[in-house]
Amino acid sequence: MSSYQVVREGAKQVIKLLEKFPEERFKYLVSFKATQLERFSRIAGLPISQKSSSEIANNKASIDEIKDIVNRTSGPLGLQKEMLKKMQAAIPHDQFSEASMKDQINALSNLVGNKYKNYYEVGNKLYNPAGNPEYYQRIIDDIQGKKKENILAGLRTVFMGR
């Protein structure tokens, strides 16, 4: 098997691992999972999945579209040729070897399997500190919108520590 085929097969394995990767709890402008799926789909030669509804609504230019504009025109958007050359040099080029693809697969499988969370297990003392045992649970409840503190309860927490 040639190295190109090994890299393509490795990219397919990475895609399978990425599909197991959990969704982000907080929505950002760019999703790690979505960008990596797009990146490795291109390497594996698979069709790139449909854009999410938020991307379609925002009509943002993708990296491929920006690369296409930079590569096919001599001076897009009135850029000087020096700046255009700097931009072309800064465009990332995905060049994976067999070893680097194995490293990608290994790293992603460790993340999906929670290897380091299980290896470096922290005790209950960190999750429930003696001085304020419900500290982290209050934060999580507030983030998820389960339990909101009013202004008086918030001031009491700030001044009293509980």
Rank of each mutant, 00 (worst) to 15 (best):
V6I: 07
E9Q: 06
K12E: 12
V14A: 09
K16L: 13
K16Y: 07
K20E: 15
P22G: 05
S31Q: 02
K33G: 00
K33M: 01
Q36V: 06
R39N: 09
G45C: 03
L46A: 00
Q50A: 09
K51D: 11
S52W: 05
S54H: 14
S54W: 14
A61F: 13
S62A: 13
D68E: 15
N71T: 07
S74W: 11
G78D: 04
L79A: 06
K81Y: 06
K86M: 04
A89Q: 04
A89P: 02
A90I: 04
Q95Y: 04
F96P: 02
F96C: 04
S97H: 00
S97K: 01
K102Y: 10
D103S: 12
Q104Y: 13
G113W: 05
Y119N: 11
Y120M: 14
E121D: 14
P129A: 00
P133I: 00
Y135V: 00
Y136P: 08
Y136E: 11
Q137Y: 02
R138D: 07
I140M: 15
D141Q: 08
I143V: 15
G145M: 10
E149V: 06
N150L: 04
N150H: 03
I151T: 04
I151Y: 10
A153D: 11
L155Q: 01
L155K: 00
T157F: 05
V158L: 14
M160P: 06
G161F: 02
